[in-house]
């Protein structure tokens, strides 16, 4: 219940109507959207029960490792009702053709693979919010100071998922495990996204906001 209540509000992409359509415009829109979502995701993390009790440096390490996984998982969940399209925002839905012109076809395909995995499982909102918190707590940062405290957070979120499945999916005792088993694909997809946006950053043609840049640099 707390995780459902912590969910951030929706964000609109609002592509600049003054700019002509181009790959740069699409990427600028996405980077701006990501930056605004990141601010919300940091507030969200602070509302995960137990997260704010971690020391500040461990909170930073978890977010520095998992920020893109959180963004990708949110896009994947929003895209569940849309066949073959990614819902970056309600006003920014991208099909393969648009992804191709933005140079994002490979990433588009990778995220859609994740979407189809969750669609086939009929991922529910309660599972999505819990899985997202697990992805954050389980981000495998190499810089954790209080390993036991982070383990405690992982355990309590894992327990929440098991409790939910026990009540709502008695018919499939392996459902929690199946959900956890999607996390490697999420990590792989997120790593792909980070690599792609790092190369866009090096190109220097797309303006990026400071928080997005700061976190991209954390993953290099």
């Amino acid at each position: 219940t707390l995780l459902l209540g912590a969910e951030p509000e929706k964000v609109c992409a609002m592509p600049d109507p003054a700019l002509p359509d181009s790959d740069i415009k699409a990427l600028t829109t996405l980077c701006d959207l990501a930056d605004r979502e990141l601010v919300l995701n940091i507030s969200w993390a602070k509302n995960i029960p137990g997260f704010s009790s971690l020391c500040l440096s461990d909170q930073m390490s978890l977010l520095q490792s998992a920020w893109m996984e959180i963004l990708v998982l949110r896009v994947a969940f929003r895209s569940l009702p849309c066949e073959d399209k990614l819902v970056f925002a309600d006003d920014y839905i991208m099909d393969a053709e648009q992804a191709k012109s933005a140079g994002l076809l490979e990433l588009h395909k990778a995220i859609l693979q994740l979407v189809s995995r969750y669609r086939s499982m009929r991922l529910e909102k309660e599972e999505f919010v819990t899985l997202k918190a697990i992805a954050l707590a389980n981000s495998d940062s190499m810089h954790i100071e209080d390993v036991e405290a982070v383990q405690g957070l992982q355990d309590s979120l894992h327990e929440a998922l098991l409790d939910y499945e026990c009540v709502h999916h008695r018919e499939d005792p392996r459902r929690a495990g199946k959900l956890i088993m999607t996390l490697p694909l999420l990590r792989q997809t997120s790593a792909k996204a980070v690599r792609h946006f790092c190369s866009i950053k090096q190109d220097g043609r797309v303006p990026m906001h400071k928080l997005f840049l700061e976190l991209l640099e954390a993953n290099v």
Partner: peptide
């Protein structure tokens, strides 16, 4: 951690 000023600030400040 020095380099991550914005993240640090956002975590320290209120929601």
């Amino acid at each position: 951690q020095e380099k991550h000023k914005i993240l640090h600030k956002l975590l320290q400040n209120g929601n």
